[in-house]
């Protein structure tokens, strides 16, 4: 009898774990990031709104542990995709193939492929063109963007990555992007373009 209880209990627990699938969670009120952090100051004078207009705001520029769940969550990835268009990332990076800015769907990462490295690229900017967005994008949206950018080269969960575009499809959908193993994933190895 007792054994049966244990079996059923284990089965129910397994079911609970299975159904709490991260893909489907929709979190409209993300927690503000926990303190665990590096403070980011803009690395470039090229700032959204002009030099000096990007403030360093402690609550928005603290890097917490990147929310891993974002890379397995359909809502976060599709929000990242929407923000990528809304904040005009495609103005320079196109839809992943690169234009004025480097491509994002390949295996080359000048400043690293880790979510926190992408985070600091967006918030603090990078030399030669990447503007600093500072406190102008809430931290959780930067994480969503970082997750989406990683999905372009197939580095996130395929079952959660977006499957279609709202505009004309120019690249394969993110959920069928070929995984491009990052060639340089460390911020110290700066790769130079030929």
């Amino acid at each position: 009898m007792r054994r049966r209880f244990i079996t059923w209990g284990a089965a129910l627990a397994a079911l609970a774990v299975c159904t709490s699938c991260k893909r489907e969670i929709r979190d409209f009120r993300p927690e503000t990031p926990e303190v665990d952090a590096i403070q980011l100051t803009p690395l470039t004078d090229y700032q959204v709104g002009g030099p000096g207009s990007v403030t360093v705001d402690p609550s928005a520029t603290l890097i917490s542990r990147p929310p891993k769940s974002y890379e397995e969550n359909a809502q976060a990835l599709s929000e990242g995709k929407r923000l990528y268009t809304n904040f005009n990332c495609y103005g320079c990076h196109a839809h992943g193939g690169g234009d004025m800015g480097p491509p994002l769907m390949d295996d080359k990462w000048i400043y690293g492929s880790k979510p926190e490295q992408i985070f600091s690229s967006i918030v603090a900017g990078r030399p030669n063109g990447m503007p600093a967005f500072g406190a102008k994008i809430p931290a959780y949206e930067v994480w969503q963007l970082a997750a989406y950018i990683r999905s372009m080269s197939g580095l996130v969960s395929k079952d959660a990555a977006p499957g279609r575009d709202d505009h004309m499809q120019t690249t394969p959908p993110e959920n069928s992007a070929e995984t491009a193993k990052p060639v340089s994933s460390s911020a110290t190895e700066v790769e130079t373009h030929p």
């Binding site: 709104g49 002009g50 705001d57 809304n86 994008i137």
Partner: peptide
Amino acid sequence: FLSRTCVMCHTIQGTTAGGMV
């Protein structure tokens, strides 16, 4: 307004805020 998240999406004519989201 101009230094925080507002400016990324909203427009106020006569300022640098020109977001159309």
